[in-house]
C-alpha cells in the first residue's frame, strides 16, 4: 500500500490528496476476511445464507445465530466484525420500531436500506468514530396485500366516498447490500466476505434478473454457493446458516424465519453432492489426459 506513511490514513473523515478516504478502505479490508454471506432475490421470496466459521470446538453447534430479523419481514446478515454487525442490527430494529410508531405500518425494505445507508455513512464523517467493519445484506418481503394500519379497528364506510382505488402491484421481494462507506445498491444476488468472488460468479450463472428462480430452488442454490465459496484447504470448518422470507401465500407467510431443519439438511446434502460431482468430473478429465 503506497498510502502507508503519508499520514492520510490515520484519521477518519480526512481525504488523501487523490480523493480517497483510507479508513473506509481499511474497513472494507476487515470485511474481506469475514465468512461469506450471500442473499438471493427469488421470484416469491428472498434467501439469506452465511458461512459461519467455527472458531472453537467448545461452541455449541447451531447456537449463536448470526442472521437476524428486523421487524417481522426483513432479515439482515453481515460479514466482517461481529460486534459491528450486532450494532448494525440493533440500529436497524430501532429504525423499524420508530417507523412503526410514526406511520403505524411496517417499514418497507427499501426505506430501511436507505436509513441504514445514511447511518453507516455518518460513521465516515467524524474523527471521533471509525467506519463500520461490516458489509450487511438486507433482504425482505414487503406485503403484497393491503395491510391495515397498526391498531386499526374497522374498515370504514363500505359505500360512498372514502373508498380506495384498487391499483396495480405492491410489495414483493427486496435485496440490498450496504458497504462500510454507506453506499448501498439493490441486487438480484448479493455476496460479501471471504468467498465473495466465487459466490458472485455462481450467482451470475443463475440468471436472477429473469425473476424465474423459485424460493425453494433459491435455498438449494444458496447452500451450494456457500459450499463452493468455502475454501476447504485454507479455512476451518463452518456451519451453514440460512434464513428466508416468502410471499404471504408462501412457506413463511411473509415472515423472515430460519429455513426449517429438514430443508436445510436436504439443501446441504445436495450441495455436497454437487461439489463431489464437480470433483469427479475434474478427476475424469485428468484421467483422460
Amino acid at each position: 500500500m503506497t498510502s502507508i506513511g503519508t499520514g492520510y490514513d490515520l484519521s477518519n473523515s480526512v481525504f488523501s490528496p487523490d480523493g480517497r478516504n483510507f479508513q473506509v478502505e481499511y474497513a472494507t479490508k476487515a470485511v474481506e476476511n469475514g465468512g461469506t454471506a450471500i442473499g438471493i432475490r427469488c421470484k416469491d421470496g428472498v434467501v439469506l445464507a452465511l458461512e459461519k466459521l467455527i472458531t472453537s470446538k467448545l461452541l455449541k453447534p447451531g447456537a449463536n445465530k448470526r442472521i437476524s430479523t428486523v421487524d417481522r419481514n426483513i432479515g439482515v446478515v453481515s460479514s466482517g466484525l461481529l460486534p459491528d454487525g450486532r450494532h448494525f442490527v440493533s440500529r436497524a430494529r430501532d429504525e423499524a420500531a420508530s417507523w412503526r410508531s410514526t406511520y403505524k405500518a411496517p417499514i418497507p425494505t427499501t426505506a430501511l436500506a436507505n436509513r441504514m445507508g445514511s447511518y453507516v455513512q455518518a460513521y465516515t464523517l467524524y474523527s471521533s468514530v471509525r467506519p463500520f467493519g461490516v458489509t450487511a445484506i438486507i433482504g425482505g418481503w414487503d406485503s403484497e396485500a393491503e395491510l391495515p394500519v397498526d391498531g386499526e379497528v374497522g374498515s370504514g364506510p363500505s359505500v360512498g366516498a372514502g373508498g380506495k382505488k384498487e391499483d396495480g402491484k405492491r410489495g414483493g421481494p427486496f435485496l440490498y447490500m450496504i458497504e462500510p462507506s454507506g453506499s448501498y445498491w439493490g441486487y438480484y444476488g448479493a455476496a460479501t466476505g471471504k468467498g465473495r468472488q466465487a459466490a458472485k460468479s455462481e450467482l451470475e450463472k443463475l440468471n436472477l434478473s429473469a425473476g424465474e428462480l423459485s424460493l425453494y430452488d433459491g435455498v438449494k442454490e444458496a447452500a451450494r454457493i456457500i459450499h463452493v465459496a468455502h475454501d476447504d484447504n485454507k479455512d476451518k470448518e463452518f456451519e451453514l446458516e440460512m434464513t428466508w422470507v416468502s410471499s404471504l401465500d408462501g412457506p413463511t407467510k411473509g415472515r423472515h424465519e430460519e429455513v426449517p431443519k429438514e430443508l436445510l439438511e436436504e439443501a446441504e446434502r445436495l450441495a455436497k453432492k454437487a461439489l463431489e460431482g464437480d470433483d469427479e468430473d475434474e478427476e475424469e478429465e485428468k484421467m483422460e489426459e
Partner: peptide, 24 residues
Amino acid sequence: DVSDMQYLNRILNSLDIRENYSNP
C-alpha cells in the same frame, strides 16, 4: 375506551416483534 384499545394493540404488536427477536 376504543382509542386506549388501539394504543394497547400497538403496544402488544411491538411486544410481539421484540419477543420474536430474542425468542422465536
